[in-house]
């Protein structure tokens, strides 16, 4: 999975990457050139109260970014919150990660190690029938779930036309403005992609250009494939085990470490 992801993102936005490169190198340099004695001295410079306060500020900063589903960048965290504590970035971010896991049941994951972009992922399993809605009663989640299941049942990657056709069968036309979702195509190819629920990538050497969809990193971490298979099974009144390949993938992924609850 990670292999495939790397090759996909590498082929993506080459030009954009080049222009970012110099910027990244500067930032990277200022991080990698920190010596352990510098860090040691910085630790002595700040009281533990001051560090606690910084940790709290970073946690709040990330929560707000996550709420707005905006990218969480290391550069922004440093610029807006960490500021003079930059030498202690690793110390602080480690404590922030621990706080997210222990207090909120969330996991801070670096999705882009080159540009240092993080997302917050829910470590708790989604549950049906909450007395109060978890994470909003968002009808868009239903739309997303349908798309994810289509991708999953078709083996993990599908051409975009297949997605649009599946949605049309549910009377959601990407070409028309939908009462609930507005611009469906924008929601799917922009919003869901930005939120890392979906990957939407150009298929190389296609003329005219074609795109394909995959599960995004957030979906991989948050959505239970086994539950999805049960859902699809119910829909078609079939035993999930009859889809041997999907079932195998779902059971291995779900039983592996990613969903460790403490």
């Amino acid at each position: 999975m990670s292999q495939r992801k790397k090759s996909v993102s590498a082929s993506q936005n080459k030009t954009q990457r080049r222009s970012q490169a110099s910027l990244n190198e500067d930032e990277e340099a200022s991080f990698s050139q920190v010596s352990s004695s510098q860090v040691q001295r910085a630790r002595e410079n700040f009281t533990s109260d001051q560090i606690d306060r910084k940790v709290a500020e970073v946690v709040q900063f990330i929560l707000i970014k996550d709420q707005k589903k905006m990218p969480i960048r290391r550069a922004d965290i440093v610029k807006h919150v960490i500021k003079d504590y930059k030498l202690l970035y690793t110390d602080i971010i480690n404590r922030v990660c621990r706080t997210f896991e222990q207090v909120f049941g969330l996991k801070l994951v670096e999705t882009d190690p080159k540009n240092h972009i993080y997302i917050l992922i829910n470590k708790l399993d989604p549950i049906q029938g909450e007395p109060v809605s978890m994470r909003s009663v968002n009808p868009k989640k239903g739309l997303l779930f349908v798309i994810l299941s289509v991708i999953f049942m078709k083996g993990g990657v599908i051409k975009e036309n297949l997605v649009w056709n599946s949605l049309k069968k549910l009377r959601v036309d990407p070409g028309e403005k939908h009462d609930e979702f507005g611009d469906v195509k924008k929601v799917v190819t922009d919003e869901f992609v930005r939120q890392k629920y979906l990957e939407y990538v150009k298929i190389p050497h296609t003329e005219p250009v074609e795109y394909e969809f995959r599960w995004g990193l957030r979906s991989e971490k948050e959505v239970s494939k086994l539950k999805m298979l049960e859902f699809v099974g119910e829909l078609f009144e079939q035993d999930p085990q009859s889809w041997t390949q999907q079932f195998r993938e779902a059971s291995t992924v779900d039983s592996s470490s990613q969903r460790t609850s403490s």
Partner: peptide
């Protein structure tokens, strides 16, 4: 006392809803 997943789920729901009534809180 340490938090368990039950507490974390409660907190997550509080975060996404902002405010809930006492009876909802009890059910939750």
């Amino acid at each position: 006392r340490p938090m368990a997943d039950s507490h974390r789920r409660f907190l997550q729901t509080m975060m996404s809803n902002g405010i809930i009534s006492a009876s909802q809180a009890e059910a939750l």
